[in-house]
């Protein structure tokens, strides 16, 4: 980790120009399907697109995580998501090796668990050609953590090259936590999958700043890039 991309690049002075393309006055810009961040010709960076599937038990905070990563207001109350919804996050990344800057276009695919069960066509739609799967569990919901192992076995079947990361949500509600640090460590060792922590919607309302989302997005970008480099070599 940290060997391919510059971590916390948003703190560096030379990233200002790039990050100013995705946010204005600390509010993230929104882009439609026909749009992308526009840079001065001198700084022009390539855009690489990826499809990321958010998977996890109903209520763990898939929609909230998508909103958080995209810099949108996190819904204050839980509503079951109907059908599939996708959100696009643009994230500039600087490669360590040659200082090249890339814009990662991460499209997050989020689908309510209940509609997944009612409509057969939705799960294939989400997993088809997915580059990465974010497996979510909630620190306040023990079963969502226990389910992870079966999810990991299940989601490994479509393609071995799919990047997998685990995200624990509602980390801020430590009073109600159902999952201990030791269990997490053991889990991490057993599966060799990195685990990230994010706060829940109620604990950190409003819009997430860059510093909050950078660790997860940087790591995600690094894993995706690593996978692509490997694929290119073989």
């Amino acid at each position: 980790p940290g060997s391919l991309v510059v971590l916390d690049w948003h703190r560096c002075a030379d990233s200002k120009e790039h990050f100013s393309r995705i946010q204005r006055r600390n509010v993230r810009k929104r882009f439609g399907l026909l749009e992308a961040p526009v840079l001065r010709p001198l700084l022009a960076a390539d855009t690489v697109s990826y499809k990321i599937f958010l998977s996890g038990k109903s209520g763990v905070g898939k929609t909230a995580l998508a909103a958080r990563l995209a810099g949108l207001p996190v819904p204050s109350m839980h509503h079951e998501t109907t059908g599939v919804q996708t959100t696009v996050v643009f994230w500039p990344v600087k490669l360590r090796e040659n200082g090249r800057v890339l814009f990662f276009r991460l499209q997050l695919w989020d689908c309510g668990e209940n509609t997944l069960r009612r409509f057969d066509h939705l799960l294939p739609a989400c997993t088809e050609q997915a580059d990465a799967v974010l497996l979510l569990f909630s620190f306040t919901d023990r079963t969502s953590f226990d389910d992870l192992s079966s999810h990991l076995t299940r989601s490994s079947s479509p393609s071995a090259s799919t990047v997998r990361l685990v995200v624990g949500t509602k980390f801020d509600l430590f009073m109600h936590t159902d999952v201990t640090e030791r269990e997490l460590r053991e889990f991490q060792q057993a599966w060799g999958v990195p685990v990230f922590r994010v706060p829940g919607g109620a604990g950190a309302p409003g819009v997430a700043g860059l510093a909050e989302v950078a660790p997860l997005l940087d790591a995600l970008a690094e894993h995706l890039w690593h996978r692509d480099v490997l694929a290119a070599q073989s």
């Binding site: 929104r30 882009f31 949108l72 599939v84 919804q85 959100t87 009612r118 409509f119």
Partner: peptide, 10 residues
Amino acid sequence: LDGTISRDYP
């Protein structure tokens, strides 16, 4: 549905 970029909604 504003805020999401695409939707497949039954």
